[in-house]
Nucleic acid binder design. Structure first.
Length: 618
DNA sequence: ATAGGGTTAG
C-alpha cells in the first residue's frame, strides 16, 4: 500500500493518521470514478517537438452521478467514526517570528513592536515582515504605508525592500508608481540586478501590459543582462495567459538553446496553461517529459494536473495523481483541498465537499476564504441560499473576511432564489465594507433583475456600471440580450446586438445561441437560419448547444427530417450530441407521434450511457 | 517566476 509506505517513511503514528485521512479523501474520488465514464486515447504534445498548434479533442460531457451519494455517505460515515476516535495535534505555529502571522492585525502590531524596539532590528528583519504581509495578499497598500513609516523613522530600504514595493504597486495596478521605485533605486545608487528587471517584467505582465514587458525584456538584453530562468518563465507565463501557446512553446525551446534550462516552475506554468486550455493529454505528456529529464514535480504541478483531470471527469487518473503526489511525501495543501471542494460542489455533491472540509480541518489545514466561497457556491447551485448564508456568517465569525468573490457568490445565490431584495442589500453592504463591486457583481445582479422581468432596473444598473467605470463585457450583453428576448422585446434585442458589434466586442456563440433560440421560439425559422449562417461568417464554429437549439427549433416546426439531418451532422462537425441533444430530438419525435424513430434514438442514447429525461420517456 | 473560489445560452 503506497499510503502505508509513505506513513512509514514519515515515521510516527501521527504521520500514519494523516496518511489514512488522505486515503479516505482519495476514496471519495475513487467513489466517483466507479460511476463515471472513463478515459480516451492520448495524443502527443507539440510543445516539446514542434511549434504548430493542435487541438486534442478530449472534451467530453460531464456526468452527474446520483448513485454516487450512497457510496459517499458510507465513506463519510467511516471518516466520522475514524476522526472521533482520535485526536490530532495542530501544527506548530511560529508566532512572534517575522515570517508567519495569523492575520494582518498581528503583523501590524509586530511591526510597531519592531520599530520601537531598541536596538532596532536590521532591514532584513523588516523585509521578512513585509514579505509575510505580501504573502497574505489583499494588503499591498499596508506594505506601502509601512515602508513609508520605516523611512520616516530613518530606516533606509535596500534593494529587496524596493523590489517588494514594485510588486505592491503593480498589484494595485499603479504602473507609474512601480516605475518611480525603479527611479529611486537608481537615485540611491543601488545596483540594478536581474531581479529588478524580472520584478518589473512580471509586474507588467500582471497588469496586462504584455507588450511593454517584452520591450523591457529586449531592453535588458540590450543592456547586457542575461535573462535567467525567472525571466523566461515570466514571459512564458505571460504568453500562456494571453493564449499565445505557440509563442510560449517557441520561447521554451529558445531558452534551452540559450543554455538556460527550464525548471519545475517553467514546466508547471506550461502544464497549468495546457490544462486550462483543455489540452490535458498534452499536459500529461509534458509531465512525463519533465520527469524523464530528472525534474521533480511539486505541489503546483500536481494541483494543476489534479484540477485538469477532474475538470474532464477523469477521476481515476486524478486519484492516481493524488496518490503519486502523496507517495512522494507531498501532502495536499489548502489549494488541493479547496479545488476538490469546488469540484465536488460543481458536481452537485455538497455533502461530499463538506466531508473534504472535515478531513482537511482534522489534518490541521484551516479553511480560508476560497474554501468557504467554494462551499457557499455549492449551496447556491443547489438553490440552498440559506445554507450559503450560514457559511458566510460562520466564515466571518472565524475571522475570515469575505471578499468580492464571496459576495458575488452569495448575491448569485439570492438572485437564483429570486430574492432580489437581499441580493441588492448585499451589493450595498459590500460597498459599505470597502469592497468595490466588479463586472461579475454587476452582471450577476443585472441577470437577477432580468430573470424577474425587471428590465428597467436592469438597464439602470447597466448605466450605473458605466458611470462607475466598469466596461460591459460579452457576459453583460448576453444577459441583457437574453432578458430582452425572454420578455419578447426582439427588436430591442437586435438593436443591442448590433450596437455591441460596433464596439470593441465581437459576438460569441452564447449570443448567437440566445438570438437563434429566440427566433425559433417566435417561429421565425428564416431569421434563425440567417443567424446560423452569419455565425460562420464571424469565424465561429457551432458547438453542441447551438446545434441543439437549432434542432429544437426544427422539431417545434415539425421539420423532423431536417432535425435528424442536423443531428447526424453534429458528429461529423466534431461536436457529437450530448445527453441534452438526445433528449431534445427524442422529445421532438414523440410530440409528433413518430414513436418508432423515438424508440430507436432512445436505444442509441442508452448505449452511449446517457439518461433519458422524465419528460422524454413519460 | 508556477496551483484553488464568482456572472451568460440549449
Amino acid at each position: 500500500m503506497i499510503m502505508a509506505a509513505a506513513a512509514v517513511r514519515r515515521g510516527g503514528s501521527e504521520a500514519f493518521f494523516i496518511g489514512s485521512q488522505i486515503q479516505r479523501c482519495q476514496m471519495k474520488i475513487m467513489g466517483m470514478i466507479l460511476l463515471s465514464p472513463t478515459t480516451s486515447s492520448r495524443n502527443h504534445s507539440n510543445f516539446i517537438s514542434s511549434s504548430s498548434s493542435s487541438s486534442s479533442s478530449n472534451s467530453r460531457d460531464k456526468h452527474k452521478n446520483d448513485d454516487a451519494s450512497s457510496s459517499f455517505r458510507y465513506i463519510n460515515d467511516a471518516l466520522a467514526f475514524f476522526s472521533s476516535s482520535s485526536s490530532i495535534s495542530s501544527r506548530d505555529k511560529h508566532q512572534n517570528d517575522a515570517s508567519s502571522f495569523r492575520n494582518i492585525d498581528d503583523a501590524l502590531a509586530y511591526f510597531n513592536h519592531m520599530l520601537h524596539r531598541k536596538p532596532r532590528p536590521c532591514i532584513i528583519q523588516f523585509n521578512k515582515l513585509l514579505s509575510a504581509i505580501v504573502k497574505m495578499r489583499h494588503y499591498h497598500d499596508a506594505v506601502i504605508s509601512l515602508s513609508k513609516q520605516m523611512e520616516l523613522a530613518g530606516l533606509s530600504p535596500d534593494t529587496y525592500t524596493l523590489h517588494m514595493l514594485i510588486n505592491c504597486f503593480f498589484q494595485l495596478q499603479r504602473v507609474d508608481l512601480g516605475f518611480s521605485v525603479l527611479a529611486k533605486i537608481i537615485k540611491l545608487g543601488l545596483q540594478l540586478t536581474i531581479v529588478t528587471f524580472n520584478t518589473l517584467i512580471n509586474g507588467l505582465c500582471k497588469v496586462g501590459k504584455f507588450g511593454q514587458a517584452v520591450e523591457l525584456f529586449d531592453d535588458m538584453v540590450a543592456r547586457g543582462y542575461q535573462p535567467d530562468v525567472h525571466t523566461y518563465t515570466t514571459i512564458i507565463n505571460g504568453l500562456c495567459k494571453i493564449g499565445e501557446t505557440v509563442a510560449a512553446a517557441g520561447l521554451f525551446r529558445k531558452m534551452g538553446e540559450a543554455g538556460c534550462q527550464p525548471d519545475v516552475v517553467t514546466y508547471s506554468t506550461i502544464i497549468d496553461s495546457l490544462c486550462k486550455d483543455r489540452r490535458v493529454n498534452e499536459a500529461l505528456d509534458i509531465f512525463s517529459y519533465m520527469k524523464a529529464k530528472g525534474i521533480s514535480p511539486n505541489i503546483f504541478t500536481y494541483n494543476s494536473l489534479i484540477q485538469g483531470l477532474c475538470n474532464f471527469s477523469r477521476w481515476r487518473e486524478a486519484s492516481a495523481m493524488l496518490n503519486e503526489m502523496m507517495s512522494l511525501n507531498i501532502m495536499p495543501n489548502i489549494v488541493t483541498f479547496s479545488l476538490l471542494i469546488n469540484i465536488f460542489c460543481k458536481e452537485g455533491n455538497v455533502f461530499e465537499a463538506r466531508g473534504v472540509l472535515k478531513t482537511m480541518t482534522e489534518m490541521g489545514v484551516e479553511p480560508n476564504v476560497v474554501t468557504y466561497s467554494s462551499l457557499m457556491n455549492g449551496y447556491s447551485l443547489q438553490a440552498e441560499v440559506v445554507e450559503a448564508r450560514k457559511l458566510f456568517d460562520v466564515m466571518i465569525t472565524k475571522g475570515c473576511k469575505p471578499d468580492v468573490f464571496s459576495y458575488n457568490i452569495l448575491i448569485n445565490g439570492y438572485c437564483k432564489a429570486k430574492r432580489i431584495g437581499e441580493a441588492k442589500q448585499l451589493f450595498n453592504e459590500m460597498i459599505h465594507q470597502g469592497l468595490t463591486p466588479d463586472i461579475v457583481s454587476y452582471n450577476t445582479l443585472i441577470d437577477g433583475l432580468c430573470q424577474l422581468g425587471r428590465l428597467k432596473e436592469a438597464h439602470d444598473l447597466f448605466k450605473n456600471m458605466l458611470t462607475n467605470g466598469n466596461l460591459p463585457d460579452l457576459c453583460t450583453y448576453s444577459i441583457l440580450l437574453d432578458g430582452f428576448c425572454k420578455q419578447g422585446y426582439l427588436a430591442k434585442a437586435f438593436r443591442l446586438f448590433r450596437a455591441m458589434q460596433s464596439t470593441y466586442l465581437k459576438p460569441n456563440m452564447v449570443m448567437y445561441n440566445i438570438l437563434i433560440d429566440a427566433m425559433c421560439k417566435s417561429r421565425n425559422l428564416k431569421e434563425a437560419r440567417k443567424l446560423f449562417s452569419e455565425l460562420f461568417v464571424q469565424g465561429l464554429q457551432p458547438n453542441v448547444q447551438i446545434y441543439t437549439t437549432i434542432i429544437n427549433g426544427l422539431c417545434k416546426e415539425g421539420l423532423l427530417d431536417e432535425a435528424l439531418e442536423a443531428f447526424r451532422n453534429m458528429e461529423e462537425d466534431g461536436c457529437p450530441p450530448n445527453e441534452f441533444s438526445y433528449n431534445v430530438i427524442i422529445r421532438g419525435f414523440l410530440q409528433h407521434k413518430d414513436e418508432s424513430r423515438a424508440v430507436q434514438l432512445i436505444g442509441e442514447m442508452r448505449e452511449k450511457g446517457f439518461v433519458a429525461d422524465v419528460g422524454t420517456t413519460a
